[in-house]
Amino acid sequence: MTAGMHEFLYKIPGITDGYRPGAHRSRSRGAGMAFAGHARLFDYPDPRRIDLHASLSSLHGEWLVRTSQQRSAVVIKVVVDVSASMHFGASTSKLEVVADFLLALGYSAHRAGDSVGLMAFDHEFREDLYMPARSGRGIGNAMAATVRASTAGNAPGSLQGLSECIDRIAGSGGLVFLVSDFHYSLDGLATVLDKLGDLLVVPLVVWDKAEIEPPAEGGLLSVRDAESGRIRRLWLRDELQRQWRDKVARRRDELGALFAASDMRSFYIEGGFDAEALSKYFLEHVV
């Protein structure tokens, strides 16, 4: 499978601040199709763009040139949860799915001319997995490899780690992907998300089929929490399967409400990464 097959389209609402030429609307003047205004030839010495009609009607009798708005590139940041729970997965681990996403993102961003940076956290910011934003063809592969190589350990994910990451990107513009399974206490998540008010934040909720859907057959099930190590033993039957599904649904509602309050909309990755679905998400929900 080539990276091209996983490409997804994204866009950013409004006008961005980027100066590098790219694909998004921005305030920068430069080569572009959208008319921005007139400027004195003295200020923009580009005689090819002299607007005769405007010059003639100029009050000061100056030569005026047309200026246009340049489309700019943005900086994309990916914040990835690499806690022990993200290493879980019945067939492929959730981090493998995240790596697929990063590959696709790298390819898509390269096509749009945007740069991508990676930040990872578990219970704290992971300095060793940090990749500053850069643009280039292989950036997706590099990020995927970094995430795949992260060790399993039993470090718990926490809001503290997420908060440390967000503190580093708050205030800058652009697009942020928050990739996590959100398997930690959500108290205070709203406060943390508020710091990202001026960015477009896409929360990617990564869950595995095995954790949201109970096994079809009943029986004795003994599970160990990947992070806390607590053990729970169940005699799996219809009643418990229903309770299990109820709890997943409740968590979904809880997360949905939290993100909605911060004007975000979560995108669920359950099982495998579907680039087309993500394109659809941007088309439908990002105006």
Binding site: A84, S85, M86, F88, K94, D181, H183, D208, E211, I212, L221, S222, V223, R224, D225, A226, E227, S228, R230, I231, R232, R233, L234, W235, L240, Q243, W244, K247, V248, R251
Partner: peptide, 14 residues
Amino acid sequence: DSLPFPWIGWLPRD
């Protein structure tokens, strides 16, 4: 003896 699980909060006590 036990399977790893990401979020034990989802499992009811039994």
